[in-house]
Nucleic acid binder design. Sequence first.
DNA 1: TAAAAGTTAAATGTTGACAAAATGGGCCGG
DNA 2: CCGGCCCATTTTGTCAACATTTAACTTTTA
Lengths: 231, 231
Amino acid sequence: MVASAKAIGQARATLADEVRGEIERMIVDGDLAAGEKLNELALSSAMGVSRGTVREAIRSLADSGLIDLVANRGAFVHETTLEEVRNLYDLRGAIFAMACANSARRVAEGTEPALAEALEKNLALMETSHDDAKAYYSLNIAFHNMLLNGAGNPRAKSMYDNVVREMHLFRRRGLSLVTNIAQSLEEHRAISDAVAAGDAEEARRAAERHITSGFERYIKIVENDDAGASD
Amino acid sequence: MVASAKAIGQARATLADEVRGEIERMIVDGDLAAGEKLNELALSSAMGVSRGTVREAIRSLADSGLIDLVANRGAFVHETTLEEVRNLYDLRGAIFAMACANSARRVAEGTEPALAEALEKNLALMETSHDDAKAYYSLNIAFHNMLLNGAGNPRAKSMYDNVVREMHLFRRRGLSLVTNIAQSLEEHRAISDAVAAGDAEEARRAAERHITSGFERYIKIVENDDAGASD
DNA sequence: TAAAAGTTAAATGTTGACAAAATGGGCCGG
DNA sequence: CCGGCCCATTTTGTCAACATTTAACTTTTA
């Protein structure tokens, strides 16, 4: 496993880091269900490392929101409630809106000369891949990443990533967070235009609208899902 | 130490948690300078626990922004740059503005029946303690906490606290983040009024103004400090 | 029968020892 | 006098064993 992980190319420096990445993957992929307990011994023997190493990995993951730690009882995969998803959307919207406003500001002052064009290119690709959900998914992530990176605030980006990752833990992981491609595309265009124009305030508003309406669409689907099939 | 900590009342469940709290305190209080290395052996012998326990505490602190981890080299107290302070202010403003907007919303819908009155009371106390910087400091923190809690978003509160704590690491810790009591008080009133009126959008604007103008005042002092005394 | 106490097994918390890597200083060659 | 190599020491990374706590099961008793 050590070898394979390194072969993949991540080149993690320490064993514990590698274990951390593996546990993270297991949670995100759903190999470990929400609410499930992380058994240190089982994990350590499964991965061929000592318990201490697994412990370290778990501790380093605890603050990310993916894991809940209970003293003398162990670590559990965090169970994200609908109420929390709402809060996470709020947080995500706040951070994303701030990032878009700053991206616009930086475009206006020439700090991000390549951003406007990159956004435009992303939008063009999205329009052509209108029906290919998988391609759209990647492009969507890329779009948001560009704006987070364009804000020049790495801490904001890492917080944003944590929040988005945690949202995926809610119930049916498969439930796409992108629900109405046409509308989403339109909102992306509004953001892109405002950023390209260097209009920070409009960029902020457009970004907030995008996240808010995304949440509303998401909620609608979840409610339909509840009414329909149970699993 | 175990006994004393428990006697104080924190009642921490595990030793590592206790050590974590102690290290955190050392960093925040400045016992450990920015950029300084955390020597596991030294810490463990100083606190009378094993190295493994210290390691665990350090790992659990790493994601909070107070500590930088470098593989095979160790843990270092994060050195916050002025550029980072700017980014942290942006983040803080975004989260605080969102929280104030949601507090206003919840006041409007009756979810937070006590909030408006509590804010008003805080403002009144602030006006009387106009010259007592120490009292003002506590009231200021309380004011912000009320709004963060009023938003009903615990994750946002914890992120906010992390951000604020990290800001204190910048250079002269003593440098107060509250710089112009009269103006700050005025801004607080604007926020409080908007929240009491249930006007989410105005609350958001007022909150953002408050953080932004706080940053501008802070920057001015830092620049003066640079020009004046070297230490 | 059911609740409570006692017992046993399993998991977490904590430690000290060993292995590997990095830092620092002295030595050698240029 | 300077720069690079090598070795000793320090420090971090990893592990296996011991201690403590929790959870589950059994037995006892009202």
